[in-house]
Simulated scan of single mutants.
Amino acid sequence: MRDKRSGQQQACTTLARWDTRADTASRGTALWITFFNRLLDNGPPDTWRRVPYDPAQPLTTPRGINGVDVRVQHALADAVQDFAARDLPVDGPASRCPAATWAASTSWTPAPTRAPAPRPPAPSAAAS
């Protein structure tokens, strides 16, 4: 139990120190993506926002994460477990957590790639 708590405390510290960028050197990017996707998996953001959407303040709401919300706590715990299962540090730089790892730890899946549609043949000079 102590290890689980210390992992969650380290995750909270990592997110608090995160520069909110997705650069390869940013520490917290992969954790944030995993946490946020886990949070979205648990349902709509009706209770986990600290300040809910207000139509009178559309540019500044919603904002914040309600750390008391059970869904938030579970999402963070699940994200920490995902990182531990892959032997990845929660405070590692984004470059150490490739997109394939993020996809495996969340419900996000990349869109399938498609071959471009074939082009119709160019008109020949004999057809004119």
Rank of each mutant, 00 (worst) to 15 (best):
T101F: 01
T60V: 13
G43L: 09
S124I: 02
F35G: 01
A56P: 01
A11P: 00
T34R: 03
L88C: 01
D69L: 12
M1P: 06
A85N: 13
S95H: 00
P52S: 11
V90G: 00
R50H: 06
R5C: 10
R38Q: 15
Q8M: 08
R63H: 13
P123H: 10
R50P: 03
G7F: 05
A126Y: 09
D3M: 10
A22F: 08
D41W: 04
R49I: 12
Q8G: 06
R119L: 15
R114P: 05
R38D: 11
S107T: 15
R17I: 11
P45S: 10
A75D: 06
N37T: 15
T109Q: 11
A103L: 12
A99D: 14
Q9M: 12
R2Q: 10
P55N: 08
Q9I: 05
P112Y: 04
D91W: 03
R2H: 11
R49G: 08
P62R: 13
A94K: 08
R119V: 10
L40R: 12
Q81T: 14
P58D: 08
T34L: 02
R2M: 09
S128T: 15
V51L: 06
T113D: 06
R86F: 03
L31Q: 01
G7E: 01
T61N: 05
V90D: 02
T34D: 03
P55H: 02
A122D: 10
D54R: 12
P52G: 08
A77P: 05
T20G: 04
M1I: 12
V72S: 11
S107D: 12
P62M: 13
D87R: 06
G64W: 05
T101H: 00
K4T: 14
R38I: 07
T113V: 05
S6L: 08
D23R: 09
L31G: 00
D69P: 02
L15Y: 02
D41C: 09
A56F: 04
S105L: 12
A100I: 12
S105C: 15
D19G: 04
P45C: 04
L40Y: 12
C12F: 02
C12D: 14
A104W: 01
T13G: 06
T61D: 11
Y53S: 04
S128C: 06
T13N: 05
M1V: 14
D78W: 13
R63S: 15
T109D: 11
P110A: 14
D91V: 02
T14N: 00
F83L: 04
C12P: 01
A56M: 14
T20Q: 10
S107H: 13
V80F: 03
G67F: 15
T29W: 00
W18V: 01
D54A: 08
G67H: 15
A122G: 08
A115S: 13
R38C: 12
Y53P: 11
P121F: 10
S26V: 03
N66A: 14
R63T: 15
A94R: 02
V80A: 08
S128E: 07
T101L: 04
G64V: 08
P98E: 06
S124K: 14
D82R: 05
T106A: 03
A77V: 06
N37Y: 14
R96S: 00
P45K: 04
W18Q: 00
D69R: 07
P123M: 04
A104K: 09
G64K: 09
H74Q: 15
R71A: 09
P120H: 07
L15W: 05
A117M: 10
A117V: 08
G28M: 03
I65R: 05
A85W: 07
P121G: 01
